[in-house]
Simulated scan of single mutants.
Amino acid sequence: LGTGTGSELRRPLGIAIVGGLAVSQLLTLFTTPVIYLLMDGISQKLARRLGQGGPSSSSNVKDPA
Protein backbone atom coordinates (compact mmCIF):
# COMPACT_ATOMS: atom_id res chain seq x y z
CA LEU A 1 0.00 0.00 0.00
CA GLY A 2 2.97 2.28 0.42
CA THR A 3 4.04 4.59 -2.38
CA GLY A 4 7.31 5.86 -0.97
CA THR A 5 10.88 5.14 -1.95
CA GLY A 6 11.56 1.45 -2.47
CA SER A 7 7.89 0.46 -2.49
CA GLU A 8 8.29 -1.08 -5.93
CA LEU A 9 10.61 -3.67 -4.35
CA ARG A 10 8.33 -4.55 -1.43
CA ARG A 11 5.05 -4.69 -3.34
CA PRO A 12 5.55 -8.14 -4.97
CA LEU A 13 6.49 -9.64 -1.60
CA GLY A 14 3.34 -8.22 0.01
CA ILE A 15 1.17 -9.54 -2.82
CA ALA A 16 2.75 -12.98 -2.54
CA ILE A 17 2.26 -13.12 1.24
CA VAL A 18 -1.32 -11.87 1.25
CA GLY A 19 -2.25 -14.02 -1.75
CA GLY A 20 -0.68 -17.10 -0.22
CA LEU A 21 -2.48 -16.58 3.07
CA ALA A 22 -5.81 -16.10 1.31
CA VAL A 23 -5.42 -19.19 -0.89
CA SER A 24 -4.29 -21.39 1.98
CA GLN A 25 -7.20 -20.22 4.13
CA LEU A 26 -9.71 -20.99 1.39
CA LEU A 27 -8.19 -24.39 0.71
CA THR A 28 -8.27 -25.25 4.40
CA LEU A 29 -11.89 -24.14 4.82
CA PHE A 30 -13.06 -26.16 1.81
CA THR A 31 -10.91 -29.28 1.87
CA THR A 32 -11.17 -30.15 5.58
CA PRO A 33 -14.98 -30.62 5.59
CA VAL A 34 -14.82 -32.52 2.29
CA ILE A 35 -12.24 -34.94 3.69
CA TYR A 36 -14.35 -35.51 6.81
CA LEU A 37 -17.46 -36.15 4.70
CA LEU A 38 -15.59 -38.64 2.52
CA MET A 39 -14.22 -40.47 5.54
CA ASP A 40 -17.70 -40.59 7.11
CA GLY A 41 -19.18 -42.05 3.94
CA ILE A 42 -16.46 -44.70 3.75
CA SER A 43 -16.93 -45.66 7.40
CA GLN A 44 -20.70 -45.99 6.94
CA LYS A 45 -20.24 -48.20 3.87
CA LEU A 46 -17.78 -50.40 5.78
CA ALA A 47 -20.14 -50.65 8.74
CA ARG A 48 -23.01 -51.70 6.49
CA ARG A 49 -20.83 -54.22 4.66
CA LEU A 50 -19.50 -55.76 7.87
CA GLY A 51 -22.95 -55.78 9.44
CA GLN A 52 -24.49 -57.70 6.55
CA GLY A 53 -23.18 -61.20 5.99
CA GLY A 54 -19.77 -60.63 7.49
CA PRO A 55 -17.93 -63.29 9.48
CA SER A 56 -19.25 -61.79 12.72
CA SER A 57 -22.88 -62.04 11.58
CA SER A 58 -25.12 -64.22 13.76
CA SER A 59 -26.85 -65.78 10.72
CA ASN A 60 -23.64 -67.62 9.75
CA VAL A 61 -23.14 -69.21 13.17
CA LYS A 62 -24.26 -72.87 13.25
CA ASP A 63 -25.58 -74.53 16.38
CA PRO A 64 -23.09 -77.26 17.47
CA ALA A 65 -25.86 -79.36 19.10
Rank of each mutant, 00 (worst) to 15 (best):
Thr3Asp: 15
Gln44Asn: 11
Arg10Gly: 15
Thr31Asp: 09
Met39Lys: 06
Leu50Lys: 03
Arg11Phe: 11
Ser24Arg: 00
Leu38Cys: 12
Leu38Ile: 14
Gln52Asn: 10
Arg11Trp: 11
Gly20Lys: 00
Ala65Val: 09
Met39Tyr: 02
Arg49His: 06
Val23Thr: 09
Arg11Thr: 08
Leu46Ala: 15
Ile35Cys: 04
Gln44Pro: 01
Arg10Thr: 14
Pro55His: 03
Gly41Gln: 10
Ser24Ile: 06
Arg49Ser: 14
Ile15Met: 13
Leu1Arg: 08
Thr5Cys: 11
Val61Gly: 00
Ser43Trp: 05
Gly14Asp: 13
Ser59Pro: 00
Met39Arg: 03
Asp63Ala: 02
Ala16Asn: 03
Leu38Pro: 00
Leu27Met: 11
Gly53Asp: 11
Lys45Leu: 15
Leu27Phe: 07
Gly2Arg: 09
Val23Cys: 10
Asp63Trp: 01
Val61Phe: 10
Gly2Asp: 15
Phe30Ala: 13
Arg10Pro: 00
Leu13Met: 12
Tyr36Ala: 14
Thr3Ser: 14
Ser7Arg: 04
Thr5Ser: 12
Ser24Trp: 06
Ser7Pro: 01
Asp63Met: 02
Leu50Ser: 10
Pro55Leu: 13
Leu37Glu: 13
Arg10Cys: 09
Ser58Gln: 10
Thr3His: 12
Ser24Asp: 05
Leu26Phe: 08
Val23Lys: 02
Leu29Asn: 06
Val18Tyr: 02
Arg11Asn: 09
Thr28Asp: 13
Ala22Met: 14
Lys62Phe: 07
Gly53Val: 02
Gly4Thr: 03
Leu29Lys: 01
Thr5Tyr: 03
Glu8Thr: 04
Val18Arg: 02
Ser57Ile: 02
Pro12Met: 06
Ala65Ile: 04
Ala47Arg: 06
Leu27Asp: 05
Lys62Cys: 08
Arg11Glu: 15
Gly20Ser: 03
Leu46Arg: 04
Gly14Val: 12
Lys45Glu: 14
Phe30Tyr: 06
Ser59Val: 12
Ser57Ala: 15
Leu46Met: 13
Pro33Asn: 02
Asp40Glu: 13
Val61Tyr: 07
Leu21Ile: 06
Ser59Ile: 12
Pro55Asp: 13
Glu8Lys: 04
Leu50Asp: 09
Leu26Ala: 12
Ala65Met: 08
Ile35His: 01
Val23Glu: 05
Leu26Asp: 05
Ser58Met: 12
Lys62Tyr: 07
Ser56Tyr: 03
Leu21Trp: 02
Thr32His: 02
Ser24Lys: 00
Thr3Tyr: 08
Leu38Phe: 10
Gly41Asn: 10
Leu21Val: 10
Ile42Thr: 10
Leu1Trp: 08
Glu8Cys: 06
Gly53Leu: 06
Pro55Tyr: 05
Leu38Gln: 08
Gly2Glu: 15
Thr3Trp: 08
Val61Gln: 11
Gly4Lys: 03
Val18Gly: 05
Arg48Gln: 10
Gly19Thr: 03
Gly14Thr: 02
Leu50Gln: 07
Leu50Asn: 08
Asp63Arg: 01
Asn60His: 07
Thr28Ala: 14
Leu13Asp: 09
Arg49Phe: 14
Val18Ile: 13
Thr28Ser: 11
Val61Lys: 06
Leu46Val: 14
Met39Phe: 09
Gly54Pro: 00
Gly41Glu: 11
Ser7Gln: 09
